[in-house]
Each structure stands twice: as C-alpha cells, then as structure tokens.
Design a binder for these strands. Structure first.
Lengths: 167, 167
DNA sequence: GGCCCATCCTTGAAATTTGAACAAATGAGG
DNA sequence: CCTCATTTGTTCAAATTTCAAGGATGGGCC
C-alpha cells in the first residue's frame, strides 16, 4: 500500500524544534547585531563589508563580478546594486575586462582598503564577543565542522554534478 | 605600561576564521534557500512565515504587537509593515486592545492557519534536509547548545539587568 | 487634576533586496 | 562565416527593511 502523499510528514522532534528555533533566533540576532555595528563603525551593512573583505583577499584585490558574487554567496543582481553603492563611496572601482568584453572587474580602491583596515579590529572584536568568547574549545570546533557541512550541502551544485545519469 | 589603544587587536586564529567564514556562508545560503522555498510554496518570506508560526502557538492565536516582535526578534517597525502585508493576504487580523487603548493584537485568521497547515510539511522537510539529515546525533545536540548560548548572549537585556549598581 | 516621561504602534522616506527581463558578447557546431 | 544557446552583467519595478519621527495613551507623582 502506497500512502506517500497522504502520510503524516516527519515532524521535528522536540529537541530538533528547540535547536531549530535557537538557530533562527541566534542567526537573526547576530546578523542584526553585526549590521548595526558595521553600519555605525564602517558606514555599511555586513554584506557590503564582506564584499570588501573578499576583494581584499583576491590577487590584485580585484575579481570578476560573477566570481565575487559566488564567493560572497549573493546573486549577481544584488552584487550589481551593492557595487554601485560602494563605488559611490569610492571604496570599489569597476574596470573593464579586456579578455571578455562582457566582463567587469570589481576592484578594491586604496580608500576602500583604508576603511577596511580601520574598521576590521572593531568588527573582529564584535564577532569574538558574540561567538568565540562564549564557547568552549570543543564547541568552537564543533561549530566549525557543522557549518562547513551545512554550507556544502546548500552550495548550488556545479552543472551536472547532480545529474549522475549524464556521466 | 599601558598600550591599550595602540595594541594589535586580537585577530581570529586561522581556525576561528574558517569557522566564522563557514558560519556566514551557511547562514546566508540557508536563509536564501528557505526564503525561496517558502516564497514558492507559501507565498511569503521566512520571516513572515515565522510570525504566523509564533502566532499559531500563542493562546487564542493572538499576541500584542510588542510581544510578537520580541518573540520573533524583529523591531516593532518591521513588524508593523509585515503585519500590514499579512493582513492584506487575509492571514492576520488586527484587533484593538480594550485594556490599553494604545495596544493592538495581531490575530492569526483561519485562513492564515490554513496556509500554515498546508505549507508546514514542505517547510519542515526543507529544514530537515538542509540541517538535521546532514548531522550526526552529537552534532545535532551540539548545534542546539551552541545556538542557545549565542542567542542568549545577543538577547537585548531586560531593563537594568546590565546595570548591577542599580540593584 | 495636571505634568512629565515612558511605552505602544504607526508612518514616511531612503536604502536594500528580489525576480524577471534585457542587451551584448561568447562559444560550440555546422 | 552563421546560428543558436549560454554566459555576463545591468536595469526596472515591486517588495522588504531600516531609521527617524510622531501621535496617542498610560502611569507615577505632586
């Protein structure tokens, strides 16, 4: 007998419920906290700050738009708007790609690097106080592993990776 | 010698860096994933869905705006806009509070309850697949504890709780 | 009662995000 | 060389979020 479509879904256990609820609360509060901290001290929300960080780590402090979007886990559309805003601030500059005339590079300016250097200590402190100072070494380790797993699971697969019948 | 203001900040260790980065990626991808899932299957973003869930658990399926805002960890302003939208959908209704003429209740309508009941299984499945199915029992337990701690640490304190000299 | 300040919730404008649509350029085949 | 599908990045409009401001009520206190 196949009752698949009528079956009671597998609800979360009480403990899973609590865990999920705690996660939602913690992540909401944390993003809020960091957004305010960075808006106050660096003049931009956390996502924008993260873009500058990623750029600062790239060779020449520059990345193609699509590459930057992937590394920052945001859509290209969102990135376009964000870079437009950061460009107005003088923290990022756009450059044409000579190899591919469609392409654009987002380049971290010296000014952008300055903002980053100036606000990084405060941001690190905020992250440390919110997270690492509150956890035991075991918990810190566990958190890393867990988040690694979750991120991998949600990462949009490369083309065909989920289509084994094509191999 | 006091060099506090000039001292090198305590940067994150490599492992802390990796953990923090993994957390940012996982939480970003997860929120995105759930927002899309719920937008598609329930016609609203995750935050709004959560509001309905909280309401559904309250006695009479109703809560004062401020109480709802606190339980959902969002600002009252954001809640006002959100409820306005949910009201347009017919999923929530506002009611005056007779005790306190300033007050408003947000009430989950039957229609709102229906939407919730209809979309809950899909949402639970998404959460399960994204999180619990990927973690060991130990990791599930650790995640709960950790998130509980982080949430508590970020919870805006009740008035005076952080002013011990007033006691 | 009258005053003062806190609380409750809303509002409006600006900023940000989303999703669909689009033009330009690339690249694989034929 | 041509054609067609794909990729790249942007743009528009609508939705959502933020932030500051404001109107109304409650509650303590003289």
């Amino acid at each position: 007998m196949n009752t698949a479509s009528a079956e009671e879904p597998r609800w979360l256990t009480d403990e899973e419920q609590r865990t999920w609820r705690a996660y939602v609360h913690a992540s909401t509060l944390l993003e809020d906290h960091l957004d305010r901290q960075l808006q106050r001290d660096a003049g931009m929300p956390h996502v924008y700050y993260h873009l500058l960080v990623v750029l600062s780590e790239a060779p020449q402090r520059r990345l193609r738009m699509t590459e930057l979007a992937m590394r920052a886990k945001i859509t290209r559309s969102r990135l376009s708007h964000a870079v437009a805003r950061l460009e107005k601030n003088g923290w990022v500059r756009r450059e044409d790609c000579t190899d591919d005339k469609r392409g654009q590079f987002a380049v971290l300016t010296d000014q952008g690097y300055e903002v980053l250097a100036r606000s990084a200590p405060g941001h690190v402190l905020a992250v440390r106080q919110a997270i690492f100072d509150r956890l035991s070494p075991e918990q810190r380790g566990a958190l890393g592993e867990i988040m690694q797993i979750l991120a991998e699971g949600l990462q949009p697969k490369e083309a065909g990776a989920d289509l084994p019948w094509l191999r």
